[in-house]
Each structure stands twice: as structure tokens, then as C-alpha cells.
Nucleic acid binder design. Sequence first.
DNA 1: TTGACATATGCCTATATAGGTATATATATT
DNA 2: AATATATATACCTATATAGGCATATGTCAA
Lengths: 117, 117
Amino acid sequence: MARAATTADPFNAVAEPRRRQLLDALGGRERPVNDLARSLGLAQPQVSKHLRVLREVGVVTVREEGRRRLYRVNGRALKPIHDWVKSYERTWADRFDELDVVLQELKRKEEEDASDA
Amino acid sequence: MARAATTADPFNAVAEPRRRQLLDALGGRERPVNDLARSLGLAQPQVSKHLRVLREVGVVTVREEGRRRLYRVNGRALKPIHDWVKSYERTWADRFDELDVVLQELKRKEEEDASDA
DNA sequence: TTGACATATGCCTATATAGGTATATATATT
DNA sequence: AATATATATACCTATATAGGCATATGTCAA
């Protein structure tokens, strides 16, 4: 068997550094392809191809505007990565101390209150 | 060009689902290879090979004990993933509301105090 | 010493890249 | 209508898988 497709899931899609660069270059706003290509010093076709992968896993969305395609990050698609890696945060964040615990607890309760409101 | 090696960085190493399963199966404790293989229903050689990749990027460490090799997660190696994906958390966590901001700020200041102590 | 046990490694195959380049497609401009 | 602009796609090549299986290496037990 070969490796899973880059379009298999966000983990695979984002494993490629160029694609993370693209997402970072997009930031919060929407940008057209050539703009991104110039920003990162990449050829336009490669950018289009990377964006296609990102789109297929839902990490970006496109909006057509005339002859341009405006891409935007859809961070929600990255949540599975965040959720998975978050459980390992404890390993390096040795300061899961008393205050932290209290704050986390406060935050959790707040969310609870909000949900059963 | 082909895809970057799975051993290129944690992003690539962890893109493979089996390897995430292995890390999850390890949890906080250390476990030998066959134990993991049985747990996940995988053949021993594949487990050894996956563990090798994880070891090469520093996500696990090994300790030799007789004829067994005890593997353990080194979560710190996952920090780059966490750091990167964290900046996108804002996108889906729409409740970065007032209380959250206050708590984050409290936490931040606490860390500041601790570092210049 | 001989055999059982634990793990790593070598070999094989099908497969999907990523980048480069040319070109197709669609839209705007003059 | 003819041309320029923006983007997507097709084609090519080298490369590194992941899994299956056999086997080498090292360690324990009788």
C-alpha cells in the first residue's frame, strides 16, 4: 500500500509545508491565486494545485469573482487536528498548576451554563 | 518531486492514522511492541516500522529492557503542530467572548509573573 | 546448547505524490 | 474581434511510502 492521499483528511493535507504557508498567507481575509503565488514566490499552477487539495478537505473555500477565485481559510476543518494534539499538550506544558486548573474549571462551567441556557 | 518523507517532521509522521493510534494506545505509560501490536490488531513488523518513524521525529523514545523495547510518547515533539493549529482555533471557537478574554489575560499575566520571578 | 520469545530489518509491489511546463478555459479590455 | 489576464488542468518523472512476508539479531529459559 502507498501512503494515504493528501486529500484523505486534514492531517495529510496540512503535512505539506507549502500548504501550511498558503493557509498562513491567507490569514483571515480572502485572496486570489496569483496574489498568493507572488507572496510565496511560487508558480501559479502549483498554488492552484495546493489550493485544490486544501479545498477537497474543506480547509479552504472559494468564491468566484469575475475571472478571479478568492480563497478563504475555513479553520473549522482543522479542528480534528487541534482536538487530537490538544490531549498531548499536558506533556510539555508542565504548568498545569493550581491557577490553571481553576481557570480551566471556570471556563468549563461557563460553557456548561451557556449550553443549558 | 515526491512527497516529503514521513520522517521529515512531526506533521508528516503523524499524518498516518495508524501512527496516531499507536500514540493514543501508548497513552502516558510505556509499552512493548508486541503489546501494542495485539492492542491494535496489527502485525509486529508494521508496528516496529511505524514506531521507527515516530522515533526518528522524536515523538516516541525507547528504553531497552531485556529482549523488549519499551516505547513512550514524547509529547513535546508534537508542540509545533499544536502551536501551528492553535492560531486557527479562533475560527471555530466563536465563543472568544468577554469572560474568555479575561481568563486568557489572567493566565497570560500569571505566566509573565512566573517567568520574571 | 538448544529452542522459545521479542524485535528489527530486508525485499517486493502498487500508488500517489510535488514540481516543472504547456495548454485549456473563462473573463475582461481595447 | 482580437488580445490580455486569471486560473485550472494535463502530462511527465523521481521518489517514498505501507503492508505483507521472510528472516536476521538478540535475549531468555530449560
